[in-house]
Amino acid sequence: MTGCPARYDAELGYWVVDDPAQVRAVMLDPTTFRPDNAVLAHTPLSVKALRVLSSVGFALPLTLANNGGESHRAIRAAVARFFSPARVAAAEPLTRDLFTTRVTAVVDRLTPAATPALTTPTTASALSTGEAVDLVQAVAAEPPALVLLQLLGLRDVPVDALKAWSLDSLELFWGWPDEDRQLELAHSAAEFYAWLRTRAVPGDDLFGVLVGLGLTVEEVCAVGYFLLIAGQETTTQLISAAFHRALTGAPASVDDVLAEASSVPTWRRTTAEAASVGDVELPAGAQVLLGLSGHGGPADLAFGVGIHRCLGAGLARLETRVALECAAVLLSAVQLVEEPPMIELLSFRAPKRLLITALLTCTDTL
């Protein structure tokens, strides 16, 4: 229904709002369009999965994304201090170093053994066409996590486990897993949550600040659970989407990617009472799915607007820009091996992997 301000999708079970002006209006009215469903499991969890989560005291009380109450402002203010413009700007040297190191390692892997390793290739023909390298794992995966942990003051974090926990939790809450898969994902989420409980102690890092604010252990863990996912995995996915666009010849500036192919293309709201979206009447309790990207809206809409705007917007922009800058030469000298398989969840979309090899015929100076 082209031009319809809101349409009901029976398969998804949501009222879908794609028009950027209407999406903005909904997000700017958090009293009518509440965030209560923002982090609920899209696919209802099975009894077995719920038992696994319950065994570690898993709970998601109202904190940030799902909080439409009075406590939201204080929690958000405490977390926002870690993402101040000054702190984000100060993270650029570390970000650039992390991406440069990984891009250089990819170049070395694509360079024939008989050729000295090249920090920056001088010509595309200097690269081998044999080995295939996954740019998601080799370049995009780790730096956002390492930068986030530095900003939050968190040490001794198992980064590989964090990446696995993040992907599993996104699938558990925004995917379509059957009961067997739910059980696997629930064990992963429970392991993540149990680890978070050990970190909810006084100190000068994010968790210590939240404890000092008077939050309960469950509230501290709820903030940490989704912040440690959203603060790095969605940026890894945004960078992966940017790399994919660059490799396929599509416009790949940060704004292009956010506007057309953001890693978070949708978000959820629910109506507190009967409400209107344009000339469409929605009933009370309606589940609403907002299109944030790919519908002709401004790039920044991908981060939301209003009191629930993404706290890490500035950091995600910086990291994606730096990643594209550091990988620009490499991206011009390689090609995709395959059309990449995708992460396809209700609110998350990005390439799972980007297998590349060096171009065979290009000899242009890079």
Rank of each mutant, 00 (worst) to 15 (best):
G3F: 10
P177N: 01
S166I: 09
Q182K: 05
L45M: 11
V277D: 02
L290F: 02
S84P: 03
Y14K: 12
D255I: 00
A252S: 15
Y225D: 14
N37Y: 06
G278K: 01
A80G: 09
T198K: 12
A114V: 10
L45C: 09
R109A: 14
R309V: 04
C221Q: 06
F226A: 08
V159D: 11
P144Y: 07
A124V: 15
G214Y: 07
P340I: 07
D255Y: 00
L366F: 11
T363R: 12
S125K: 12
L98W: 08
A117V: 13
S188L: 04
A327H: 08
E142S: 03
S71F: 00
A333Q: 01
T31Y: 02
R268A: 04
P351E: 04
A299I: 05
P112R: 07
L247N: 08
Q137M: 05
D180G: 05
R317A: 01
A91Q: 02
D279K: 09
T361P: 00
T320S: 04
V217K: 08
V16I: 14
F303T: 14
W195S: 08
G57L: 09
G312K: 03
L98G: 08
G304H: 04
T129I: 12
T266R: 13
L60M: 13
E191L: 01
V254L: 03
V106C: 07
R87M: 12
H187I: 09
V136W: 08
F99D: 04
V220F: 06
E179W: 00
T198W: 01
R34P: 02
E338L: 07
G297V: 03
G249L: 01
S262R: 05
L94N: 02
C326Y: 01
T63V: 15
L331S: 03
A302K: 08
A86T: 11
S276M: 15
A140K: 04
R24I: 10
V88Q: 14
L45G: 12
T2E: 15
T198I: 07
A113M: 09
R81H: 12
R321F: 03
A41F: 09
L53Y: 11
T216C: 03
A200M: 07
A259H: 02
S188I: 06
S54L: 11
S293L: 01
E325V: 05
T120M: 12
A164P: 00
S125I: 13
S46H: 11
P351A: 06
V52A: 13
E131R: 15
Q137S: 14
L118I: 05
R199I: 07
C326F: 00
V337N: 01
